[in-house]
Design a protein around this nucleic acid. Structure first.
Length: 766
DNA sequence: CAGTGAGCGAGCTTCCGCTTGACTT
């Protein structure tokens, strides 16, 4: 017999709590939800007022059996799932599955994991809050209805195996909308004037960097101004010194951790979560899926202690941050070190890095504001109304910045904040150089995984536990793709004034270079447009916020959950029917024009195997010609010229030893084919459209040469090859390791067969 | 690894949120 059984959601939490509660208590975990809507079909009985058909998923059957066994032996059962909508639903499902009386089942919640908080919770049990449970049921059923009714429409009208949902479809929309802003963006240039002034005529005078208050649209305007500068006198017109403060950012939530880990450490969203999970399981940090910026009293006092010890009293300032995020449910604390005295932890390099980031952010959040002094100098030009401005900033007291400064998505290279030498009004300055640099406006930035999470959180869409999976889903469906782009060179004009002489020059810069950004794919754009056309309210950026308001009313007992669903489902289902009846198959087809020689129509569309360009139509038994679009081309933006160019490949390059060499563009980039073998062309070095036979033969010989070096022994079907990690065996495209101690050079065919058979056996037994 | 683009049609695909492993490379 167990005297007291406590059920929590997470096994790591179960271990911690059990230590606090002593021997009369056994604590086990439900590993999250234990029941869900039936996997097959809709899982909802529409004829019975949205009655959910709940079932225990296969992978949960083992844990449910354990829970049942423990429950049958326990005198008292305490359900301690999280204090939010999902947690309350877990409590109710547990009560249902374990056949507990909902009237008497003891529902408790902890706000922090300390002995006091836990015994306090045990002393104050309550009943399961059915209103909160019903708001979760409404949420669950609505998501299932949206997902499982719209997705099949996509299968019929667009392509099989696609999906739509309240969260993922908005995530895709954000990326598509942003891409279209970028497509329609027209960069404009202007000429920015920067100057380096000296406080006195001698060479080692203090220097001041300044920028002109005006930018010039045309280069000759900039030139005229520089010509004025040649003979101008420069005088300090005004000096203002303003004190300012900077405050630390709140401690991490899931979303801000993902953003900062990306910006500072370069981790992807899912990588961050995997590493954080490890740290959590090792008891090094608090729970990593949270939307709360709250710190426990214990953490606050411990931070104070650490800060005073490490940096001194004046660096400490205890703060409690309010969670601003819409729809935050705050079932947990912010993400913080479990033991704040540990500035570092043992573990892998990435674990160390992420832990230190969390430690710094937490500690900084409890530190004093930084005190800064901002100096602005206005410099007059005596023969022109254009003034120069110099901005400087001096940190008077570093405060939290001693430990941590938050990064931004777009680091500002323009604003240079430097120390300004002491100058006073009326002082004469001498230019060292004045430079006009052409500057282009930049389009809005593409989303990174982390900045998309930030945007979703701002819109109240998705939860800490789903940000990483959502990002994976929209990539797995092929809606968006995380890619790099090399950018394009462009020329910028520079005018440089030095020692009374103006020298014009040009410089090249790279524009539009991208690293690890989310790009929409054709199928994502087609699905997005189809959803906006037919389900505009579901993919509206505010849809989630609106239904969340209704979920809140259900939780407050002011609205019946089935009534809310009825209000939603009636019009929604009508739209589904209408869309099925009235819309055609969506291929994203565009007519680009006519072939310049034959006059045949040239179109692009989504084909069976991806985006395709087509010359001619299949009417009247004609056979059209087809060519796949390349990776970076979009149906939406490809031009007639670009489409026609696709048909120039594959192209014959020449004959070598009586066999034809062909150049083409494949799935994996440009290639040449010779004697049935493929040879990749290096990006940016060789171009399949223009490569000649001489160069092609060079590439072929090079690769054949390499292959020869790779071959150690050739037994026909079995080969011993030299690979990246040393010699290995290969047979039927399967690779096998050579056991340690064996000499690859001297192996016989029989020995090779032995090695292969042994390794095959091992595979089967494991 | 590097191609494909006709049509028929069985049986399948799919949501969001809570939790961890069990997989592979």
């Amino acid at each position: 017999m167990i005297e007291n059984l406590v059920i929590v959601e997470s096994p790591a939490k179960a271990n911690t709590i059990e230590k606090f509660l002593g021997k009369d208590f056994r604590v086990i975990s439900s590993f999250g939800h234990i029941r869900d809507l039936a996997k097959k079909n809709l899982g909802i009985d529409l004829s019975k007022d949205f009655k959910p058909d709940y079932e225990i998923p296969m992978e949960k059957s083992k844990i449910v059996a354990e829970l049942r066994k423990a429950a049958s032996q326990a005198r008292n059962i305490w359900i301690a799932s999280d204090e939010d909508r999902e947690g309350e639903a877990i409590a109710w499902h547990l009560a249902e599955v374990l056949k507990l009386d909902t009237e008497t089942t003891k529902r408790i919640v902890f706000h922090e994991i300390t002995k006091d908080a836990i015994s306090n919770a045990i002393d104050n049990p309550r009943k399961i809050d059915m209103n909160l449970v019903n708001s979760q049921q409404a949420r669950r059923v609505l998501d299932r209805l949206v997902g499982f009714e719209i997705s099949p429409v996509l299968w019929r009208k667009v392509q099989p195996a696609l999906s739509a949902g309240r969260v993922q479809s908005v995530a895709v929309r954000l990326i598509v909308d942003r891409e279209r802003e970028i497509i329609s963006f027209k960069p404009e240039s202007s000429h920015r004037i920067t100057a380096l002034f000296a406080a006195g005529p001698d060479p080692d005078s203090a220097l001041i960097k300044a920028e002109a208050s005006k930018r010039f649209n045309e280069e000759n305007e900039a030139l005229k101004f520089l010509e004025l500068c040649v003979n101008a006198g420069f005088t300090v017109d005004n000096v203002t010194v303003k004190p300012g403060t900077r405050s630390p950012a709140p401690p991490f939530t899931t979303s801000t951790l993902q953003q900062e880990a990306y910006r500072k450490l370069g981790f992807s969203v899912s990588q961050t979560m995997t590493i954080a999970q490890k740290l959590y399981e090792a008891g090094k940090i608090t729970y990593m899926r949270t939307d709360s910026t709250n710190l426990s009293k214990l953490a606050l006092s411990k931070s104070h202690e650490v800060i005073v010890k490490e940096f001194g009293d004046r660096y400490s300032k205890t703060r409690q941050f309010r969670t601003k995020t819409r729809g935050a449910q705050e079932a947990h604390e912010a993400i913080r070190p479990a033991y704040l005295d540990n500035q570092t932890v043992p573990g892998s390099l990435n674990e160390k890095k992420l832990y230190e980031l969390i430690w710094k952010r937490t500690i900084a959040s409890q530190m004093a504001d930084a005190q800064v002094e901002k100096t602005t100098i206005t410099i007059e030009t005596d023969n022109s109304p254009v003034k120069f401005l110099a901005n400087g900033e001096v940190v008077k007291f570093d405060g939290f910045m001693k430990v941590y400064a938050e990064s931004t998505d777009q680091e500002n290279q323009d604003e240079e904040k430097t120390l300004i030498p002491p100058v006073s009004k009326g002082m004469k300055l001498f230019y060292r150089n004045i430079t006009s640099t052409q500057r282009y406006t930049t389009p809005p930035p593409r989303y990174t995984e982390a900045s998309l999470v930030k945007k979703l959180e701002e819109l109240g869409i998705g939860r800490p536990s789903t940000y990483a999976p959502t990002i994976s889903t929209i990539q797995n469906r092929g809606y968006v793709s995380r890619e790099d782009r090399p950018g394009e060179k462009r020329s910028i004009r520079i005018l440089s004034l030095e020692k009374g002489k103006i020298t014009p020059s040009s410089k090249t810069e790279i524009a539009g270079k991208e690293k690890s950004k989310l790009f929409p794919q054709d199928i994502g754009m087609i699905v997005n447009d189809f959803l906006i056309e037919n389900f505009s309210d579901i993919v509206d950026y505010h849809f989630t916020a609106e239904v969340e308001e209704q979920f809140d009313e259900i939780a407050a007992g002011k609205l019946k959950w089935t009534g809310m669903l009825k209000g939603f489902y009636g019009p929604f289902h009508d739209t589904i029917q209408k869309t099925l009846e009235k819309t055609d198959r969506q291929t994203g087809i565009r007519v680009l024009g006519n072939h310049p020689e034959t006059g045949e129509p040239v179109t692009v569309r989504m084909g069976r195997f991806g985006p395709v360009a087509q010359i001619g139509s299949s009417e009247n038994g004609n056979k059209p010609r087809y060519a796949s679009l390349t990776k970076n081309q979009l149906l939406e933006t490809i031009t007639l010229e670009e489409a026609l160019k696709l048909f120039r490949l594959p192209r014959p390059v020449g004959i070598h030893d009586g066999e034809e060499i062909v150049a083409g563009m494949g799935k994996f980039g440009p290639y040449i084919r010779y004697k049935g073998k493929f040879f990749s062309l290096k990006k940016g070095v060789d171009d399949p459209y223009s490569i000649n036979s001489e160069r092609a033969i060079e590439i072929i010989n090079e690769k054949n040469e390499e292959e020869k070096k790779k071959m150690i022994r050739d037994f026909g079907d079995i080969k011993i090859l030299n690979g990246r990690y040393g010699p290995y065996l290969t047979r039927d495209k399967q690779n096998y390791r050579i056991p340690k101690g064996a000499d690859a050079e001297k192996l016989t065919k029989e020995e090779c067969i032995n090695i292969i058979e042994k390794s095959e056996k091992k595979k089967k037994s494991s």
